[in-house]
Amino acid sequence: MSDPLAMFAVALVAVFVAMLLVIIRTFMGPSLYDRVLSVNSFGTLTVLLLGLLGFLTGRPDFLDIALLYALINFVGTIAVLKFVRHRLLGAANPSRDIADSRDEIVKGGQA
């Protein structure tokens, strides 16, 4: 009951099951955005998995890797979305940016 390894193992099993379900959605996902969404969730679960593995093996240094993975996961998601929207990863091409009519919402929303 009070063996800490048991509770890490329980959490690890939950993370594994969640990862399995999420990766199924990544392969099934009808639209591209479903896939990006599930890959992002998969990254969050990987962060938890790294932390739990560190505790389970008694080496909490794994948390540095988990923190780094969280950063890379966020940047990767944004990079994929930017590539899909602008078709390039450098400076955004202003003529292809669709969100440019920022003020019209004020007139439309308040009316």
Partner: peptide, 9 residues
């Protein structure tokens, strides 16, 4: 989903 001056969608 979207932000503007005085409202959020």
């Amino acid at each position: 989903i979207e932000t503007a001056e005085h409202a959020l969608l």
